[in-house]
Simulated scan of single mutants.
Amino acid sequence: MFRYALPVSLAFFLSACGHEEPVQIGVRPAMVVQPEPSARVSDSYPGEVRARYEPELAFRIGGKVSRRLVEEGERVKANQPLAELDPQDVRLQLEATRAQVTAATANLNLVRAERDRYKTLLERQMVSHSQYDNAENLYRAGEARLKQIKAEFDVANNQAGYAVLRAPQDGVVAKRAVEVGQVVAAGQTVFTLATDGEREVLISFPEQNYGRFKVGQPVSVELWTQPGQRFDGRIRELSPAADPKSRTFAARIAFSAGKVPAELGQSARVFIQSADALSLSVPLSALTAEGGATYVWRVDANNTLHKTPVRVGAFGEKTVPVLEGLSASDWVVAAGVHVLHEGLQVRPVDRSNRVVNLAVKE
């Protein structure tokens, strides 16, 4: 009897389960906010304090470096020796030229005496005019030869002095490019000198932002040693070509104030205001990124999500300015954006978990 009762009861139970209504999954709530007006947008770029003038120093003649008298980072005075070349070759050339000057001087004395003798004989009508003219021409040639040799001697003497590289003015050796024993060519950079005087900040712009800036544009500079204090400045120089390695454009920022407590090599940050007077801002938690692009989830009047690309500015502590892609009347999801997808129906709520009627709000 129990053999028949169990299958019947089991069948009745399975039949009851088959007629149970499916569980309805509710619409997911989503906290939404509207973009708020933000303060004037500014981009910031890290930089390094550099000298206004940084001449590259080089020997005016080629040769082998025999002595290096300063180190990188050392302070130097105007006309101070920095390095020397092996002077043997230039000294030999100077001695050879000096010997030529002596020979040319002796030759000039000889032809002068000969000319004077022929002049006396001509007055006595003992030689012809052609013989005297020949003696006169030899004298003039000897005189010109002496002038030429003296000029060559001055050049050789100058080159002997060029074997010593000197600082053109006071400053700091910012970079050293040679070692003792190295053979350098004339004009090859040996040192880079950061001269005393004005200080600037060197920064680099990415390719996509290059067109937004121009020479003379006002900026503000903050030194890492003095956080919170801003110094007025301007873009003094903007490179027309990108660096072949970093693909960025170098720019130099000049301080507007006369005296700024900025030392060589200090870190700084340059703030440049955007051309847009006002922008909208959204919470950082509202942003999502994919494939190098930035998006937010916009909610329409039917409570449906749409993935909307936006262009943002410099990130703040809690918010980020949105430069393009949103209007002030839009509603965006402010949290949990990583689990959303296109076309999802949501129940908009505010930060107090109150339902937001977007059809009315818009």
Rank of each mutant, 00 (worst) to 15 (best):
W297P: 11
W297S: 10
W297H: 10
W297N: 08
W297K: 09
V299W: 02
D300V: 08
D300A: 03
A301T: 15
A301C: 00
N302I: 00
L305R: 06
H306F: 06
H306E: 11
K307I: 13
K307Q: 14
T308M: 06
T308D: 04
R311N: 10
R311V: 15
R311S: 14
V312Y: 01
V312E: 06
A314G: 00
A314M: 05
A314D: 09
F315D: 01
G316A: 05
E317C: 00
E317L: 15
K318H: 15
K318F: 14
K318C: 00
K318G: 06
T319R: 08
T319M: 12
V320M: 05
P321H: 04
P321W: 02
P321F: 03
P321D: 06
L323W: 02
L323E: 10
G325W: 02
L326N: 04
L326Y: 02
L326F: 02
A328I: 09
S329I: 08
W331D: 03
W331T: 03
V332I: 15
V333Y: 03
V333H: 07
A334F: 06
G336I: 11
V337N: 07
V337M: 03
L340M: 13
L340I: 12
H341S: 14
H341F: 14
H341W: 13
G343R: 09
L344H: 02
L344I: 11
L344N: 01
L344S: 01
L344W: 02
Q345A: 14
Q345Y: 06
Q345R: 15
V346P: 07
V346E: 03
V346Y: 04
R347Y: 09
D350K: 08
R351F: 13
R351W: 12
R351H: 14
R351Q: 15
R351C: 06
S352C: 02
S352A: 15
N353E: 15
N353Y: 13
N353R: 13
N353P: 04
R354A: 14
V355C: 02
V355I: 13
V355W: 08
V355R: 11
V355N: 08
V356A: 04
V356E: 10
